[in-house]
Simulated scan of single mutants.
Amino acid sequence: MNGALSTVTIVAALVLAAWYLLRAALDRAPSRFDLLAMAVFGALVTVLVVVAVVGLFDGSRPQETGTFAGYLITTVGFAPTALVLAKMEPTRWGNLILGIGCLILPVLVLRLQQIASVTGA
């Protein structure tokens, strides 16, 4: 796992989570900017996952490759799922969905780092 890219992803997720949760607390529906920000964040997460998949083929695989693959699939699918659910809910709850999604993604990234660090992947 790329340390700098993981850190950028985690920080971006936490900043976005604070933004979305603040907007939900202010009773605001997701704006185009909110949805676009989540789409851009989803692209960042996709880059992180692609880098991790490429790292699987350099010879240093994690001991729990199946678990690692499961976390990769969950991580890459989480942001788009939250985005679709938020678009379906055009009230303050849409921002809450985005905020909770952004709070869960750092946990997934940290877990990927933990699994990869067992073998130095």
Rank of each mutant, 00 (worst) to 15 (best):
S60T: 04
Y71M: 07
P80I: 14
Y71V: 11
L83S: 03
L56M: 14
V76M: 04
L48K: 02
V50Q: 11
P80E: 10
V53C: 13
V53I: 15
K87V: 07
V47T: 14
T81W: 10
G55E: 06
A86I: 15
T75F: 05
V76H: 05
R61I: 00
V45N: 04
A82E: 01
T81I: 11
A79G: 03
P90I: 06
V50F: 05
F57E: 01
Q63S: 11
Y71P: 00
T75D: 12
V47Q: 04
G55D: 09
A52Q: 12
L83H: 03
T81L: 10
S60R: 08
G66M: 13
T46V: 11
A52I: 13
L83F: 09
P80Q: 13
P80V: 09
M88V: 08
T91G: 12
A69R: 01
Q63V: 14
E89W: 12
T46Q: 14
G77K: 11
V76G: 04
T46I: 11
E64I: 02
L83E: 00
V47A: 08
V53M: 13
V54S: 15
I73R: 12
A79K: 01
T67V: 13
G59W: 10
Y71H: 06
E89S: 14
F78L: 14
G70L: 12
L48E: 02
F57V: 01
A52W: 08
V50P: 06
V50A: 12
V47R: 01
E64W: 06
G77T: 15
V84F: 03
M88Y: 06
P80F: 13
T81E: 07
G66D: 13
F68K: 00
G70Q: 10
Q63E: 10
F57W: 08
L48P: 00
V49Q: 07
E89P: 06
F78C: 06
L44A: 08
K87D: 03
P62E: 00
V54C: 11
L85P: 00
A86W: 09
G55R: 01
T74N: 10
V49K: 07
P62S: 08
